[in-house]
Design a binder for these strands. Structure first.
Length: 301
DNA sequence: CGTTGAACCTGTTTGC
DNA sequence: TGCAAACAGGTTCAAC
Protein backbone atom coordinates (compact mmCIF):
# COMPACT_ATOMS: atom_id res chain seq x y z
CA UNK A 1 0.00 0.00 0.00
CA UNK A 2 1.50 3.37 -0.96
CA UNK A 3 2.46 5.67 1.86
CA UNK A 4 -0.28 8.05 2.77
CA UNK A 5 -3.10 5.75 1.74
CA UNK A 6 -5.58 5.59 4.58
CA UNK A 7 -6.08 2.20 6.13
CA UNK A 8 -9.03 0.46 4.53
CA UNK A 9 -11.55 -0.70 7.00
CA UNK A 10 -12.43 -4.01 5.42
CA UNK A 11 -9.34 -4.89 3.52
CA UNK A 12 -8.45 -8.54 3.75
CA UNK A 13 -5.65 -10.35 2.04
CA UNK A 14 -4.31 -13.84 2.13
CA UNK A 15 -0.97 -15.10 1.04
CA UNK A 16 -1.01 -18.72 1.97
CA UNK A 17 0.38 -21.79 0.37
CA UNK A 18 -2.71 -23.70 -0.30
CA UNK A 19 -3.32 -27.03 1.30
CA UNK A 20 -6.48 -27.85 3.21
CA UNK A 21 -5.85 -25.61 6.26
CA UNK A 22 -4.83 -22.67 4.11
CA UNK A 23 -7.85 -22.99 1.86
CA UNK A 24 -10.04 -23.32 4.94
CA UNK A 25 -8.48 -20.14 6.32
CA UNK A 26 -9.16 -18.30 3.08
CA UNK A 27 -12.74 -19.59 2.99
CA UNK A 28 -13.38 -18.40 6.53
CA UNK A 29 -11.99 -15.00 5.68
CA UNK A 30 -14.03 -14.66 2.51
CA UNK A 31 -17.13 -15.72 4.42
CA UNK A 32 -16.88 -12.62 6.53
CA UNK A 33 -17.07 -10.40 3.46
CA UNK A 34 -18.69 -12.04 0.46
CA UNK A 35 -22.06 -13.61 1.29
CA UNK A 36 -24.84 -11.16 0.41
CA UNK A 37 -22.65 -9.19 -1.99
CA UNK A 38 -23.43 -8.93 -5.67
CA UNK A 39 -20.76 -9.18 -8.35
CA UNK A 40 -21.42 -6.22 -10.60
CA UNK A 41 -18.54 -6.55 -13.01
CA UNK A 42 -15.81 -8.96 -13.97
CA UNK A 43 -12.54 -8.06 -15.63
CA UNK A 44 -9.98 -10.63 -16.69
CA UNK A 45 -6.29 -10.45 -17.45
CA UNK A 46 -4.62 -13.66 -18.50
CA UNK A 47 -7.16 -16.42 -18.76
CA UNK A 48 -5.20 -19.61 -19.35
CA UNK A 49 -6.13 -20.85 -15.87
CA UNK A 50 -9.85 -20.50 -16.60
CA UNK A 51 -11.68 -23.45 -18.14
CA UNK A 52 -14.02 -21.30 -20.20
CA UNK A 53 -13.30 -17.58 -19.92
CA UNK A 54 -16.25 -16.64 -22.14
CA UNK A 55 -18.68 -18.56 -19.95
CA UNK A 56 -17.35 -16.87 -16.83
CA UNK A 57 -17.71 -13.47 -18.45
CA UNK A 58 -21.31 -14.20 -19.39
CA UNK A 59 -22.51 -15.97 -16.28
CA UNK A 60 -20.83 -14.35 -13.30
CA UNK A 61 -21.58 -10.61 -13.57
CA UNK A 62 -24.87 -9.77 -11.91
CA UNK A 63 -24.71 -12.76 -9.58
CA UNK A 64 -25.39 -12.67 -5.89
CA UNK A 65 -22.88 -14.50 -3.71
CA UNK A 66 -24.87 -16.73 -1.38
CA UNK A 67 -22.19 -18.76 0.34
CA UNK A 68 -18.55 -19.71 0.32
CA UNK A 69 -17.40 -23.23 1.05
CA UNK A 70 -14.46 -25.54 0.67
CA UNK A 71 -14.22 -28.94 -0.95
CA UNK A 72 -10.76 -30.40 -0.46
CA UNK A 73 -8.47 -27.72 -1.84
CA UNK A 74 -11.23 -26.20 -3.97
CA UNK A 75 -13.07 -23.06 -2.97
CA UNK A 76 -16.67 -22.89 -4.06
CA UNK A 77 -18.65 -19.67 -4.28
CA UNK A 78 -22.35 -20.33 -4.51
CA UNK A 79 -23.87 -17.80 -6.89
CA UNK A 80 -27.42 -16.95 -7.82
CA UNK A 81 -28.66 -14.76 -10.63
CA UNK A 82 -31.88 -13.87 -12.38
CA UNK A 83 -35.11 -12.84 -10.72
CA UNK A 84 -38.00 -15.13 -11.54
CA UNK A 85 -36.01 -17.81 -13.27
CA UNK A 86 -33.42 -18.17 -10.58
CA UNK A 87 -30.22 -19.74 -11.76
CA UNK A 88 -27.75 -21.31 -9.41
CA UNK A 89 -24.13 -21.39 -10.39
CA UNK A 90 -20.93 -22.35 -8.67
CA UNK A 91 -17.70 -20.48 -9.09
CA UNK A 92 -15.08 -23.13 -8.48
CA UNK A 93 -11.55 -21.99 -7.70
CA UNK A 94 -8.35 -23.90 -7.07
CA UNK A 95 -5.39 -21.89 -5.83
CA UNK A 96 -2.80 -24.23 -7.29
CA UNK A 97 0.61 -23.50 -5.90
CA UNK A 98 0.63 -19.71 -5.68
CA UNK A 99 -2.97 -18.59 -5.98
CA UNK A 100 -4.51 -15.95 -3.72
CA UNK A 101 -7.97 -14.51 -3.32
CA UNK A 102 -8.08 -11.07 -1.83
CA UNK A 103 -10.84 -8.63 -1.04
CA UNK A 104 -9.73 -5.03 -1.33
CA UNK A 105 -11.13 -1.61 -2.05
CA UNK A 106 -11.92 -1.39 -5.76
CA UNK A 107 -9.34 1.36 -6.21
CA UNK A 108 -6.59 -0.42 -4.30
CA UNK A 109 -3.23 -0.84 -5.93
CA UNK A 110 -3.01 -3.83 -8.23
CA UNK A 111 -0.40 -6.40 -7.34
CA UNK A 112 1.55 -8.05 -10.16
CA UNK A 113 0.01 -11.25 -11.54
CA UNK A 114 -3.52 -10.30 -10.64
CA UNK A 115 -5.62 -11.91 -13.34
CA UNK A 116 -9.26 -11.60 -12.29
CA UNK A 117 -11.19 -8.73 -10.74
CA UNK A 118 -14.71 -9.31 -9.43
CA UNK A 119 -16.13 -5.90 -8.65
CA UNK A 120 -18.59 -6.08 -5.78
CA UNK A 121 -21.56 -3.86 -5.00
CA UNK A 122 -19.86 -2.30 -1.99
CA UNK A 123 -16.97 -0.58 -3.75
CA UNK A 124 -14.69 -3.46 -3.09
CA UNK A 125 -13.22 -6.10 -5.32
CA UNK A 126 -12.50 -9.78 -5.04
CA UNK A 127 -9.23 -10.35 -6.86
CA UNK A 128 -7.50 -13.50 -7.96
CA UNK A 129 -3.73 -13.37 -8.12
CA UNK A 130 -1.52 -16.25 -9.16
CA UNK A 131 2.06 -15.75 -10.36
CA UNK A 132 2.54 -19.31 -11.61
CA UNK A 133 -1.00 -19.71 -12.87
CA UNK A 134 -1.24 -23.31 -11.71
CA UNK A 135 -4.60 -22.37 -10.27
CA UNK A 136 -7.90 -23.08 -11.90
CA UNK A 137 -11.22 -21.33 -12.17
CA UNK A 138 -14.51 -22.24 -13.72
CA UNK A 139 -18.21 -21.59 -13.47
CA UNK A 140 -20.59 -24.52 -13.47
CA UNK A 141 -24.12 -25.49 -12.57
CA UNK A 142 -24.17 -27.58 -9.40
CA UNK A 143 -24.72 -30.85 -11.27
CA UNK A 144 -22.04 -29.95 -13.76
CA UNK A 145 -19.52 -29.23 -11.03
CA UNK A 146 -19.72 -32.86 -9.99
CA UNK A 147 -17.37 -33.68 -12.83
CA UNK A 148 -14.68 -31.92 -10.86
CA UNK A 149 -15.72 -32.22 -7.23
CA UNK A 150 -17.35 -35.63 -7.46
CA UNK A 151 -14.22 -37.74 -7.95
CA UNK A 152 -12.51 -36.25 -4.92
CA UNK A 153 -11.80 -38.59 -2.05
CA UNK A 154 -12.76 -38.57 1.60
CA UNK A 155 -12.47 -35.51 3.81
CA UNK A 156 -9.61 -36.35 6.18
CA UNK A 157 -11.38 -34.53 9.00
CA UNK A 158 -14.63 -36.41 8.67
CA UNK A 159 -13.83 -39.86 7.33
CA UNK A 160 -14.84 -42.77 9.58
CA UNK A 161 -12.24 -45.10 11.05
CA UNK A 162 -13.48 -48.00 8.98
CA UNK A 163 -13.39 -46.03 5.74
CA UNK A 164 -9.99 -44.59 6.52
CA UNK A 165 -8.63 -48.07 7.13
CA UNK A 166 -10.15 -49.40 3.93
CA UNK A 167 -8.76 -46.57 1.80
CA UNK A 168 -5.26 -47.35 2.99
CA UNK A 169 -5.08 -51.06 3.57
CA UNK A 170 -6.57 -51.86 0.16
CA UNK A 171 -3.72 -50.18 -1.66
CA UNK A 172 -0.17 -51.18 -2.45
CA UNK A 173 0.95 -47.64 -3.27
CA UNK A 174 3.24 -45.79 -0.92
CA UNK A 175 1.47 -44.07 1.91
CA UNK A 176 2.91 -40.73 0.82
CA UNK A 177 1.42 -41.19 -2.65
CA UNK A 178 -1.92 -42.22 -1.18
CA UNK A 179 -2.15 -39.21 1.09
CA UNK A 180 -1.27 -36.85 -1.74
CA UNK A 181 -3.79 -38.47 -4.09
CA UNK A 182 -6.86 -36.21 -4.07
CA UNK A 183 -8.99 -39.13 -5.18
CA UNK A 184 -8.19 -40.90 -1.90
CA UNK A 185 -8.30 -37.99 0.54
CA UNK A 186 -9.18 -34.48 -0.47
CA UNK A 187 -7.05 -31.66 0.82
CA UNK A 188 -3.77 -33.23 1.89
CA UNK A 189 -0.65 -31.63 0.43
CA UNK A 190 3.08 -32.07 0.77
CA UNK A 191 3.54 -30.22 4.05
CA UNK A 192 0.74 -31.77 6.04
CA UNK A 193 1.43 -35.21 4.66
CA UNK A 194 5.00 -35.08 5.94
CA UNK A 195 3.91 -33.60 9.24
CA UNK A 196 1.27 -36.27 9.73
CA UNK A 197 3.61 -39.13 8.85
CA UNK A 198 6.21 -37.77 11.23
CA UNK A 199 3.68 -37.49 14.02
CA UNK A 200 2.42 -41.02 13.37
CA UNK A 201 5.98 -42.35 13.04
CA UNK A 202 5.38 -43.85 9.62
CA UNK A 203 7.98 -43.79 6.85
CA UNK A 204 6.63 -42.13 3.67
CA UNK A 205 7.71 -45.04 1.47
CA UNK A 206 5.74 -47.68 3.37
CA UNK A 207 3.01 -49.36 1.33
CA UNK A 208 -0.56 -48.73 2.42
CA UNK A 209 -1.41 -52.41 2.57
CA UNK A 210 1.59 -53.08 4.80
CA UNK A 211 0.58 -50.70 7.55
CA UNK A 212 -0.56 -52.30 10.78
CA UNK A 213 -4.01 -51.41 12.07
CA UNK A 214 -2.40 -49.61 14.94
CA UNK A 215 -0.32 -47.51 12.58
CA UNK A 216 -3.35 -46.65 10.49
CA UNK A 217 -5.21 -45.53 13.58
CA UNK A 218 -2.24 -43.45 14.65
CA UNK A 219 -2.08 -41.86 11.21
CA UNK A 220 -5.72 -40.88 11.17
CA UNK A 221 -5.40 -39.29 14.57
CA UNK A 222 -2.19 -37.50 13.56
CA UNK A 223 -3.77 -36.14 10.40
CA UNK A 224 -6.79 -34.86 12.24
CA UNK A 225 -4.71 -33.21 14.94
CA UNK A 226 -2.23 -31.65 12.51
CA UNK A 227 -4.93 -30.29 10.22
CA UNK A 228 -7.04 -28.95 13.06
CA UNK A 229 -4.07 -27.31 14.68
CA UNK A 230 -3.02 -25.73 11.39
CA UNK A 231 -6.53 -24.41 10.80
CA UNK A 232 -6.57 -23.00 14.30
CA UNK A 233 -3.30 -21.19 13.60
CA UNK A 234 -4.46 -19.88 10.24
CA UNK A 235 -2.36 -22.21 8.09
CA UNK A 236 1.27 -22.01 7.07
CA UNK A 237 2.48 -18.91 5.36
CA UNK A 238 6.01 -18.50 4.22
CA UNK A 239 6.52 -14.81 3.80
CA UNK A 240 6.74 -11.65 5.78
CA UNK A 241 3.35 -10.68 4.51
CA UNK A 242 1.08 -8.87 6.93
CA UNK A 243 -2.55 -8.33 6.08
CA UNK A 244 -4.67 -5.37 7.04
CA UNK A 245 -7.27 -7.73 8.41
CA UNK A 246 -6.56 -11.30 9.26
CA UNK A 247 -3.16 -12.42 10.39
CA UNK A 248 -0.67 -14.38 8.35
CA UNK A 249 -0.69 -18.07 9.20
CA UNK A 250 1.57 -19.26 11.95
CA UNK A 251 1.61 -22.98 11.53
CA UNK A 252 4.99 -23.06 9.83
CA UNK A 253 6.68 -22.31 13.12
CA UNK A 254 5.37 -25.66 14.26
CA UNK A 255 6.65 -27.74 11.38
CA UNK A 256 8.30 -30.83 12.78
CA UNK A 257 9.58 -32.42 9.61
CA UNK A 258 8.78 -30.37 6.52
CA UNK A 259 11.77 -28.34 5.28
CA UNK A 260 13.89 -29.38 8.26
CA UNK A 261 16.55 -31.44 6.46
CA UNK A 262 19.66 -31.78 8.61
CA UNK A 263 17.93 -30.39 11.68
CA UNK A 264 17.30 -32.46 14.77
CA UNK A 265 14.14 -34.48 15.16
CA UNK A 266 12.12 -32.95 17.98
CA UNK A 267 11.50 -36.42 19.39
CA UNK A 268 14.84 -38.17 19.23
CA UNK A 269 17.45 -35.69 18.03
CA UNK A 270 18.34 -37.63 14.89
CA UNK A 271 18.87 -35.47 11.84
CA UNK A 272 15.85 -35.14 9.59
CA UNK A 273 16.45 -36.53 6.11
CA UNK A 274 14.96 -35.72 2.76
CA UNK A 275 14.18 -38.14 -0.02
CA UNK A 276 11.96 -38.08 -3.07
CA UNK A 277 8.82 -40.15 -2.62
CA UNK A 278 5.94 -39.98 -5.04
CA UNK A 279 7.93 -37.40 -6.94
CA UNK A 280 7.92 -34.96 -4.05
CA UNK A 281 10.44 -33.84 -1.48
CA UNK A 282 9.72 -35.83 1.65
CA UNK A 283 11.15 -35.05 5.06
CA UNK A 284 11.27 -37.65 7.78
CA UNK A 285 13.17 -38.84 10.81
CA UNK A 286 15.13 -41.95 9.81
CA UNK A 287 14.98 -43.23 13.37
CA UNK A 288 11.36 -42.57 14.32
CA UNK A 289 10.06 -43.45 10.87
CA UNK A 290 11.58 -46.78 9.97
CA UNK A 291 12.08 -47.43 6.27
CA UNK A 292 10.37 -50.44 4.74
CA UNK A 293 12.64 -53.41 4.17
CA UNK A 294 14.40 -53.62 0.84
CA UNK A 295 14.34 -49.91 0.30
CA UNK A 296 17.22 -47.79 1.42
CA UNK A 297 16.34 -44.14 1.65
CA UNK A 298 18.04 -42.33 -1.16
CA UNK A 299 19.54 -39.12 0.08
CA UNK A 300 18.91 -36.01 -1.95
CA UNK A 301 20.69 -32.73 -2.10
C1' DC B 1 -2.37 -51.08 -10.50
C1' DG B 2 1.62 -48.25 -9.45
C1' DT B 3 5.81 -45.48 -10.62
C1' DT B 4 8.48 -42.01 -12.89
C1' DG B 5 9.37 -38.02 -15.33
C1' DA B 6 7.87 -34.21 -17.81
C1' DA B 7 4.89 -30.47 -18.51
C1' DC B 8 2.34 -26.29 -17.18
C1' DC B 9 4.67 -20.99 -15.36
C1' DT B 10 7.18 -17.62 -12.57
C1' DG B 11 9.91 -16.38 -8.71
C1' DT B 12 13.34 -17.28 -5.22
C1' DT B 13 17.23 -19.59 -3.26
C1' DT B 14 21.52 -22.03 -3.69
C1' DG B 15 25.99 -23.18 -5.50
C1' DC B 16 30.05 -22.48 -8.01
C1' DT C 1 29.30 -10.30 -8.05
C1' DG C 2 27.03 -13.02 -11.58
C1' DC C 3 24.97 -16.58 -13.68
C1' DA C 4 22.94 -21.09 -13.85
C1' DA C 5 20.86 -24.70 -11.60
C1' DA C 6 17.80 -26.30 -8.30
C1' DC C 7 13.73 -25.77 -6.04
C1' DA C 8 8.84 -24.41 -4.76
C1' DG C 9 2.87 -25.64 -1.02
C1' DG C 10 -0.36 -28.73 -7.25
C1' DT C 11 -2.23 -31.41 -10.92
C1' DT C 12 -2.24 -34.11 -15.14
C1' DC C 13 -0.54 -37.01 -18.66
C1' DA C 14 2.27 -40.33 -21.21
C1' DA C 15 5.18 -44.20 -20.99
C1' DC C 16 6.65 -48.30 -18.82
Amino acid sequence: MPAGTPALLFEVEYLLMPELPEVETVVRGLRRHLPGRRIVELRLGKTDFIDDPVAIGERVPGSLIRAVRRHGKFLVLELERGGEARVEELLVVHLGMTGQLIVVAADAEIAPHTHAFFTLDDRRELRFRDPRRFGRMLVAAPAESEKILGPLGADPLEVSEAEFRRLISSRRARIKALLLDQHVFRGMGNIYTDESLWKAKIHPARLGANLKLEEIARLQKAMREILEEAIRLGGSSISDYVGADGQPGEFQIRHRAYDREGKKCFRCGTKIRRMIVAGRSSYFCPRCQVAPRGRRPRAVG
